[in-house]
Design a binder for these strands. Structure first.
Lengths: 144, 144
DNA sequence: TCTGTTACTGCAAGAAATCGCAATAAAATA
DNA sequence: TATTTTATTGCGATTTCTTGCAGTAACAGA
């Protein structure tokens, strides 16, 4: 709720218009603990606002990502998922083989990110970094 | 060429069948210096093999990623791009705002990856890590 | 509060990626 | 080499995501 308003304030300050659709999308994303697909967000809002369009959901999510209020990642089934950046900060370790996803702490990554900042001037936002590789289960069978 | 055969050998050893389609896809990807979309690969192969189907290209690329011979990343226009893992190892820094992509060295990331390995048993493959954030051009205008 | 500007939405069409299934062909075996 | 098994392909349909456009409504200014 609180962070929901922060996002709205920030968008308004940037000159974006706050429509009922955008409010509902932001609210839905903020209140959820999971990573949601655009489809899922659309489904949840529909009962309250029958005419909300899926394209609007996608466009709003794009805006939120672009403005740094949300992150987009690729879910297990290949669909895009979205979450607020404040939502439980962690690293995603995704197995390229079985698709399993693990949450990991990103303590220890900070020095490297600072190095990137000073070398390239690039400010990495590390809330939802996704790294690919092999999980413990899939390393065992020797496959190279 | 050489690496192309390595990939084919490895797939064969895993019990996958080597079809002309798969050979052409692997060859195309290996010989290209750029990151290619499935569509692009399809387009390049078509002259030589009129009936090759786009779905086959997607399925083969999935296989290559799953088997660790290629990596998949999201291109500037939101399309998926593919590259062999051997192809010029680097980090991708993608600006969430303007979409610009920067190549960066991942020297300095190694200690963190080793930490992940020992903590979670997860073996990150760092050839094509993509990190999102703000590029030097987009940091300036204060937007929070 | 009313009005004008123009960002935003809904709709429908389009593009990108995936899936199911019958036909095909790779490669193991005889 | 011929046969058999079954992984893989092509095709068409489907799903997921994006885009263009005309109508609508947020919000700045009067």
């Amino acid at each position: 709720m609180t962070h929901c308003h922060t996002t709205i304030q920030s968008l308004r300050r940037q000159g974006f218009r706050i429509t009922p659709q955008r409010e509902m999308i932001i609210e839905t994303l903020t209140q959820s603990n999971a990573h949601l697909s655009a489809e899922e967000i659309h489904k949840r809002i529909k009962p309250r606002s029958k005419t909300i369009n899926l394209a609007t959901v996608y466009r709003t999510l794009d805006l939120l990502v672009e403005q740094g209020h949300a992150t987009r990642l690729i879910g297990k089934e290949g669909k895009f998922l979205y979450a607020t950046r404040q939502h439980s900060r962690h690293l995603h370790l995704v197995c390229r083989k079985c698709g399993r996803a693990y949450a990991a702490s990103y303590d220890g990554l900070q020095p490297f990110l600072e190095q990137l900042k000073s070398t390239y001037g690039f400010q990495v936002e590390a809330e939802h970094v996704t790294l690919y590789g092999l999980c413990p289960h899939c390393i065992h069978p020797p496959n190279q």
